[in-house]
Design a protein around this nucleic acid. Structure first.
Lengths: 338, 338
DNA sequence: TTTATTTACGAAAACGTTGTAGTATTTTTT
DNA sequence: AAAAAATACTACAACGTTTTCGTAAATAAA
């Protein structure tokens, strides 16, 4: 790291370090001709200011952290894309942390960030996060958090989600309209707000159409794929199996497809499937997967915009605000009446 | 950012800053009882060292950058997963940058990193990168780069790929064995080494089986999906269309599926398709997609391990080394003889 | 007992920036 | 012509660490 610094530029130009620093930041205190000389040499020597020195001095870092449960998932990678697009534009840097749905990892990551490595955080909760002390602590250290999708109501800040209740309602009504009578719901978490909202939408749809919810049709899934596989298999091979399942997340729909393959259950004839999903190959699946598609990219953009807006103004407290973007139902083969 | 720092700890404990600093890093210069006192208070006050100060002083940052063309792609997100798993273990932080296959963005990102924000870089080239000055410059600034998948031969360093030639050979032979006579190749880039290698494997397979390569069967694709769509459509609707296509990357196979849907070409009956892919839903597609599957997660892990090994030893120069991991052919419906 | 050596700490100088508080000039105002 | 203000710079003190170099006191070796 023996790269050019202000000192070297100053010596070369016979100027003081302060003058060079100010010239590069286009201060009015510096004469035009000097500015030009400085900028020319800086360019020639490919000067890049040392970000650590700068962050230390200014006590802020033009860096944010994204904390998400996983990355091999279209929703989250699209959201990252959205965040990154704004970050690149605003000249911010993006650190990425994965919790792998593990509360302890989430806590560790957050603790680490208390040191001031980042100016702010954009995050989506791990599915087994039930306590929020670590998040309170972070905001107490003046590091703002903006939540997207898997938000935390306990923290006063900005939150970006889609209309999950509406989505759950629409998905379930779509199934009802397509003649399903015994509709199951596959959930991922008891605590996650989005999961609850989706389930409430589901229940509301049943209620609206005078279908009384069958308690055994709600499959509480976990982070273990094999576990989920077995649970779903049990339900689908039991007596009085559902004729449709609305899955809270894409991963569960995949598992449902796999179980159906093993059990030779035909989708959509015997079982209709719909889920929240951003799969790019949903339309090429067998059968093509009906989905509630979230504007993942826009959600990322929105969350990032809000965060940067506050960081740029040195506001470390972000008031409560709930941005709700619309998701859209894309009906495909998996819910088709045959 | 008014978090506890060494000064506060020192004052509280009636010790000097140096003593506290040394105690926290378990220096032999400090007595056991003092160490305990310091550590206890640090824990109580939730002390996190300021990473900027530390990086500035030590002239290294426990941070690396991942530079990749895109993220909404299973291969790259799995690779990130692999990198992150090692980073978390080694207590490194990971910055992420996307080039969106744009050479100019790649150059800008690299230039930015010259300031010393990161200790090293793990990257996969953009598909339109033909010049490598920016990369040479970065290594000249003592910031090592480890390449994975889309590697750059011009830079002397470690590179992690799969056996792309073998993969191309295997994929093509698989098609030949399945009675294909007129096999096309869909490429993404003239310059990308992996693409070339895969194509060479393809050509070698043809040669080995005495099939003379049909020049018009090599589709040179770009970064524009619609462009690719049209090119593929043209070939498939022209006269003497291929009876199989081997696509260099997954995205192109998706496009082929889409074109076939429009043209009502049946896969695999009329056209067999195989590609390099890490799609998690390949087995659920219609038809299920035959693929050369790369060990993306392991590639990321490997690249990260090599980089961290050097960084931990303060070696900024990484000697040439080419790690070649095995990819595996997974034959599925899209190449089945019917 | 005297001289080394070890132990346990502290003072101070970096690291590269940025921002405040000067200070000579020059220019403008009275 | 004197006073005020603007211009174009420089010196220096932070920011929070880490590390080198001291240095007393305690212990060991001579």
């Amino acid at each position: 790291m023996d790269s050019t610094n202000l000192k070297m530029l100053a010596k070369e130009l016979n100027l003081s370090i302060s003058t060079v620093s100010k010239a590069l930041r286009d201060s009015h205190e510096i004469g035009e001709s000097t500015k030009k000389r400085v900028i020319a040499l800086a360019k020639k020597l490919n000067y890049q200011p040392n970000p650590h020195a700068s962050s230390l001095r200014k006590q802020k870092s033009k860096t944010i952290a994204i904390i998400i449960p996983e990355i091999a998932n279209n929703f989250f990678s699209l959201a990252i894309n959205g965040i990154e697009s704004i970050a690149q534009e605003k000249d911010y840097h993006v650190l990425i942390y994965l919790t792998h749905e593990d509360y302890n990892k989430e806590v560790n990551i957050i603790k680490h960030l208390q040191g001031g490595r980042v100016g702010g955080v954009i995050m989506s909760l791990s599915s087994d996060t039930k306590k929020f002390d670590h998040l309170h602590e972070l905001t107490a250290h003046n590091i703002p958090i903006v939540f997207f999708d898997r938000i935390c109501h306990e923290i006063e800040t900005a939150k970006v989600t889609t209309d999950d209740f509406q989505g759950g309602l629409a998905a379930t009504e779509h199934l009802i309209i397509n003649h399903c009578k015994n509709i199951g719901f596959a959930s991922i978490s008891d605590t996650l707000s989005i999961d609850n909202k989706r389930m409430q939408g589901y229940l509301e749809a049943l209620n609206k159409h005078n279908i009384k919810p069958n308690k055994s049709s709600v499959v509480k899934c976990t982070n273990s794929d094999t576990n989920n596989y077995n649970k779903i298999k049990k339900i689908l091979s039991g007596k009085n199996p559902p004729d449709a399942i609305f899955a809270s997340i894409e991963k569960l729909a995949i598992t449902i497809y796999e179980v159906c393959e093993e059990l030779k259950i035909k989708i959509p004839e015997q079982l209709k499937v719909i889920c929240f999903s951003n799969l790019s190959t949903a339309h090429l699946m067998k059968p093509s997967l009906s989905a509630i598609k979230q504007p993942a990219f826009e959600m990322g953009k929105e969350a990032a915009s809000i965060l940067f807006k506050h960081l740029d103004k040195n506001r470390t407290f972000i008031p409560n605000e709930h941005i709700i973007l619309k998701s859209t139902l894309v009906a495909r083969g998996s819910t088709l009446i045959k």
